[in-house]
Design a protein around this nucleic acid. Structure first.
Length: 568
RNA sequence: GGGCCUGUAGCUCAAUGGUCAGAGCAGGGCGCUCAUAACGCCUUGGUUGGGGGUUCAAGUCCCUCCGGGCCUACCA
């Protein structure tokens, strides 16, 4: 038994997440966590809401709530949706927690002691009417280069020229529209990533088994142009972790907070501490190599947009602190899921969101489609037609109908208990051998986090059941040799119990329903003969309701229409 | 502009430089009747985006052109 720490990229607090967010981090992380638990490993699966930053403040202002209340409400809502999708976090924390505040301030203090913090005075645009400094992207004006009127402060979307906000003609705040802007001097802390460049580069170089997507993004940032740059880690905002050196004040930084990207990854640790405080556990044995975390394998899941922060910023924080924190062992990164040709977009309300999804269909439908089409090698596209076909064929026909045909046949001929008599012949031994080969392949893909291939292998395992049943044909055998048919049916019923265990990481709700119907346990099939005799003769079961209703054409058409625009 | 990823069957995707480029779905045929008209077997379908090059051998490596996507450090 090994110990696995698993973290999913933190969903931002600003609104309900869409299916693209879900498949890029939380869902595959859950798949892996469930699988490892199923194999008997000790797992700590952590996620949290990322609650700081300008967008959270603006979203709260829009609803008229104090930002703390807004975040509390949205956290509760996201927790509920996460539970609805079966995301099996050991703890779903909040980056605004006291634990994270303490850790963030502590690490900043250690980085300062190590000489890795610079104080830099700089000029930024301040909006007098908004009462806040404006990030470059919140300033719009006319591009001095091409005359495009909606150029942003950082870059003109029209001519792609890099801009400084002061370059813009007629600049205004995108928050209020105000043109009452001025340039003010402000002091910020910078994390000296450049000083850690060689150490980070050597570390990345040692990770030869990481996805290309992960290492190529990291290397681009490390070596492009002048190489890894220092990064501002503070902001002039009200909502966030107050800038302190540990528990001491930071002279000159009063009223400022740490940048959301400094404190967000630290919340992986913070959330584990939250878990420990809530459950009486020990978080340090997961995070401190001097306190028991030496045998932990740490895996992070995230979308590609998060990779720079996890390969450069957070490791700089961890390594630079000089303390024995646990570093990530493997970063599994994902491309994007697109929606009918374009991007899913939280800000534009484009695509299918987690709450919509659960209102239409049970979580397992979505889990299966999303995981079996996970954007691993490149962006992948969600279309309603593809979704309908996959779900109907894979879940309803291949798996659902298999369960239905064997349980109903048994009930009509033998009653609702596992029938006795008969012994395996060649067909059964062949099936067992085929199952073993496929299960070992499935385990290999799951160990390697090859999500789509694992889904394909699982489906192939389901298909083996139908092939066997078709060849054995107990409905024919029964007429000549009821004892032989009893053996075939008994094997079929045991296959259902086997499928419940194997499928649980992908479709946990269905797996639970199967276990309940079959009165079976959830042990992993290390040995196929044992697994296929888990339900002994006489073992009572019930015929479950159809596991999956098919998606009808008119439903698909209605949903296609309903979700084609942008949602309010 | 720069960097990275990507283009393979109608669709979604596979293929350490090495048999005849493979699966699933969709399409066609046959079988079966336990089952959610479900299942099984067989089968049609490809100049691997275009062009050039390296090699005994290229989907794979190099160059070039075309198309799609992402990132580019103050959105997170």
């Amino acid at each position: 038994m090994a110990r696995h720490l698993i973290t999913s990229a933190l969903p931002y607090i600003n609104g309900i997440k869409h299916l693209g967010n879900l498949v890029g981090s939380q869902l595959p992380a859950d798949l892996y966590a469930r699988y490892l638990r199923g194999r008997g490993h000790e797992v700590m699966f952590i996620c949290a809401t990322d609650e700081h930053g300008t967008p959270a403040e603006l979203a709260a202002a829009k609803t008229g709530e104090p930002v703390a209340e807004y975040c509390a409400r949205m956290h509760a809502e996201q927790s509920k949706l996460a539970a609805g999708f079966g995301l099996s976090f050991d703890h779903y924390g909040r980056s605004s927690s006291a634990q994270n505040r303490w850790l963030t301030q502590h690490l900043a203090g250690k980085l300062d002691e190590a000489g890795l913090i610079n104080e830099i005075s700089e000029k930024q645009v301040y909006s007098i009417d908004d009462g806040r400094f404006l990030p470059d992207r919140y300033i719009e004006g006319t591009c001095p280069n091409c005359g495009y009127e909606k150029a942003r402060g950082d870059q003109c979307e029209n001519c792609t020229k890099q801009l400084d906000p002061t370059d813009l003609i007629n600049p205004h705040s995108t928050i209020s529209g105000s043109t009452n802007l001025e340039v003010r001097e402000t002091k910020h802390l910078y994390l000296r990533q450049s000083a850690m460049k060689d150490q980070i580069a050597a570390w990345i170089d040692s990770k030869t088994d990481w996805p290309v997507l992960t290492t190529s993004i990291a290397k681009k940032w490390l070596f492009d142009g002048d190489g890894l740059q220092d990064r501002g880690i503070t902001r002039d905002l009200d909502w966030g972790v107050p800038v302190q050196k540990g528990d001491q004040p930071w002279p000159g930084m009063e009223g400022k907070v740490f940048y959301v990207w400094f404190d967000a990854p630290i919340e992986y640790i913070g959330a584990t501490a939250e878990w420990a405080d809530a459950n009486g556990g020990d978080w340090e044995r997961w995070w401190r190599t001097d306190k028991g975390a030496g045998d932990v394998t740490y895996t992070q899941f995230m979308g590609k947009d998060n990779v720079p922060f996890h390969t450069l910023g957070f490791p700089t924080t961890i390594m630079g602190s000089g303390e024995p924190w646990k570093l990530v062992d493997y970063i599994k990164s994902f491309n994007y899921l697109t929606y009918d040709g374009g991007q899913f977009s939280t800000s534009q309300g484009r695509g299918v969101f987690m709450d919509d999804a659960l209102s239409l269909l049970p979580a397992d439908y979505w889990r299966w489609w999303l995981l079996s089409h996970a954007p691993e090698s490149g962006d992948s596209e969600f279309t309603w037609e593809n979704f309908q076909q996959s779900v109907n064929k894979d879940l309803a026909d291949v798996l659902g109908n298999f369960v239905s045909r064997i349980t109903k046949f048994c009930r009509s001929k033998f009653g609702e208990a596992v029938p006795e008599g008969g012994a395996w012949g060649e067909a059964e031994r062949d099936l067992a051998a085929a199952l073993t080969a496929r299960i070992r392949a499935y385990e290999g893909f799951m160990d390697g986090m090859e999500v789509r291939k694992a889904a394909g292998e699982l489906r192939a395992i389901w298909v083996l059941g139908n092939e066997y049943l078709q060849a054995a044909a107990p409905w024919s055998t029964f007429k000549e040799d009821p004892v032989e048919a009893a053996m075939q049916v008994r094997l079929g019923l045991n296959l259902i119990a086997l499928y419940a265990s194997l499928s649980a990481p992908f479709i946990p709700f269905t797996a639970a329903a199967l276990r309940e119907a079959m009165n079976s346990g959830d042990s992993w099939p290390d040995d196929i003969d044992t697994a296929l005799s888990a339900l002994p003769p006489g073992h009572a079961f019930t015929v479950p309701d159809n596991l999956f209703a098919k998606i009808a054409d008119d439903e698909r058409e209605e949903w296609t229409e309903r979700f084609k625009g942008i949602r309010a």
